[in-house]
Simulated scan of single mutants.
Amino acid sequence: MSTIHIMYNPPHPGEIIREDYMTPLELNVTETAEALGITRANLSRILNGHAGISPNMALRLSMAFSTSPDMWLNMQLQYDLWQESQHHPEMKVKQLYSTEEA
Rank of each mutant, 00 (worst) to 15 (best):
S68M: 04
M71C: 08
P24Q: 12
M71P: 02
N48Y: 07
P55Q: 02
M75N: 10
Y21G: 11
A64M: 14
N56C: 09
G49R: 04
H50E: 13
S66N: 15
F65Y: 12
P55Y: 03
H50Q: 15
N48W: 00
M71H: 13
L61Q: 06
Y79K: 04
L47E: 14
E26N: 15
T30P: 06
N28S: 12
S62V: 03
L47W: 04
T32I: 10
I38W: 01
R45A: 14
A33G: 02
P69M: 01
R40H: 14
G49H: 01
M71F: 14
Y79M: 10
S66Y: 05
M22Y: 11
P24N: 08
E19F: 09
R45P: 04
T39C: 09
E26F: 14
H12D: 07
L47P: 15
A64C: 10
I46A: 10
S44E: 12
Q76A: 11
G14F: 12
I17R: 10
N42A: 14
L36M: 04
Q76T: 09
I38T: 01
L73W: 13
R60E: 07
H50V: 06
S68W: 09
L43T: 00
L73R: 11
M57Y: 08
S68K: 08
D70H: 13
R45T: 07
E34N: 14
E31P: 02
F65C: 04
L43G: 03
T23K: 08
L73K: 03
L27W: 12
S66W: 07
M75Y: 09
S44H: 13
I38L: 07
N56V: 04
P55M: 06
T30Q: 05
P55A: 01
D20F: 05
D20Y: 03
L36A: 06
R60G: 00
G14W: 08
T67F: 12
T32V: 01
I53H: 02
N48V: 03
E15W: 01
L61H: 02
N42F: 15
N74Y: 07
V29N: 15
E31S: 04
A64Q: 10
I38R: 02
D70C: 03
T67V: 05
G52P: 14
Y79A: 00
H12P: 15
S54Y: 14
L27N: 13
A58F: 12
M71L: 06
R18N: 13
P13G: 05
T67G: 12
L59E: 09
L43C: 06
V29T: 10
V29S: 06
R40T: 09
E26L: 08
S54C: 05
M71Y: 15
L36Q: 05
A33Q: 09
E34K: 15
L73F: 05
H50W: 01
T23D: 06
R45D: 08
